[in-house]
């Protein structure tokens, strides 16, 4: 056999690959550097660099007369966030994000619970795909679908007419705040679409945390005389909470930063994302746009910090 040799240590082979391989074996730190270099440089320079540059801009201000950026350190731009018009935007967005998160948790829970506790074998796979496909399918198409559904001549109106319940819709739309000319230009519409688009992100973490609950814990509660409501309140809900919190990180963060949904389906009142978009685009006020975009970062920072303390990251 040609390759079988009687040498105990084989001679160094020539060839670039072999020499490089020897070199890297002797210097594992160089290998680590080669592995980490490109991704860290890319993310560090392109992403973090731009992000820091943006944050820096929020400490500049814009000259009201010339419209040019005044490169002097100031907190004036942040102060602008507190004027009522801007503060309303922040408040509106945070309230919406909180409501969307709450509603998503309520809708997601039964699906996650069923998938975790009752679905087996083939059904488990169907449930998984049933969540993954809508989660991954096109964001814009999903919004578009709701534009079709909520339109005045769309399926909702049609269905309610058939059921002779159109008066209900009209009554709802006549309400202040949540109402409007039609569903597609009301807060109600924005709310529904937000839930639709971000709710799937809630299901998988809840399912993961429920799967870790031993089934006999639930039976134990029932054996001890707990009725279903008590079992839910004292056993299931606390155990699922880390999953809910983990899921809410997504629903909350994604709602906070979205500017397309409220623009396509909603009233003309702005959300944070729209404000950022408008400030940097038409208004050309980059410092204010930057300051606005710091708001979700700070809110998410606080949120993540709280979530970490509740142990939500184990459920991801």
């Amino acid at each position: 056999m040609s390759a079988v040799t009687h040498q105990s240590i084989l001679p160094e082979r020539s060839g670039l690959a072999r020499r490089l391989s020897d070199f890297l074996w002797r210097h594992p730190h160089v290998l680590l550097l080669i592995l980490l270099g490109p991704p860290v440089l890319w993310l560090g320079i392109i992403y973090l660099g731009s992000l820091l540059a943006l944050l820096l801009q929020s400490f500049f201000s814009i000259d009201d007369f010339s419209g040019l950026i005044n490169y002097e350190f100031t907190l004036a731009t942040y102060k602008q966030l507190l004027i009522p018009a801007n503060f309303d935007i922040i408040l509106r967005t945070v309230v919406m994000a909180a409501l969307v998160t709450l509603a998503s948790a309520i809708i997601a829970f039964p699906i996650a619970y069923y998938a975790a506790r009752y679905a087996k074998g083939k059904w488990k796979a169907i449930f998984y795909l049933g969540v993954m496909l809508p989660l991954w399918s096109s964001y814009l198409v999903k919004i578009y679908a709701w534009k079709l559904i909520l339109a005045k001549e769309g399926i909702v109106t049609w269905a309610l007419t058939k059921l002779h319940l159109l008066w209900l819709l009209d009554a709802w739309l006549a309400l202040p705040v949540v109402g409007g000319n039609s569903l597609s230009i009301s807060y109600t519409g924005t709310f529904i679409v937000f839930i639709y688009v971000w709710m799937p992100f809630m299901i998988l973490p809840i399912q993961a945390s429920l799967e870790r609950v031993p089934g006999n814990l639930i039976e134990a509660s029932a054996d001890l005389g707990g009725n279903p409501a008590q079992t839910f309140k004292y056993v299931l809900f606390p155990l699922a909470l880390p999953g809910i919190v983990a899921g809410s990180i997504f629903t909350f963060s994604l709602t906070l930063g979205d500017y397309i949904i409220p623009q396509v389906i909603g009233s003309s009142r702005l959300f944070i994302g729209q404000a950022v978009y408008a400030q940097q685009g038409t208004a050309g006020n980059i410092p204010l746009a930057a300051a606005f975009s710091v708001v979700p970062i700070v809110i998410m920072g606080l949120y993540l910090w709280m979530a970490k303390r509740m142990g939500a990251f184990d459920a991801l």
């Binding site: 991704p39 392109i46 973090l48 660099g49 731009s50 992000l51 963060s253 906070l256 978009y277 998410m300």
Partner: peptide, 23 residues
Amino acid sequence: ISLLVILPIALPGIITGIALRSA
């Protein structure tokens, strides 16, 4: 490193977008 990789999707897309644009 893990945090650095996850950050671009953990923060709202609009922040990534505007940061890149101004850069």
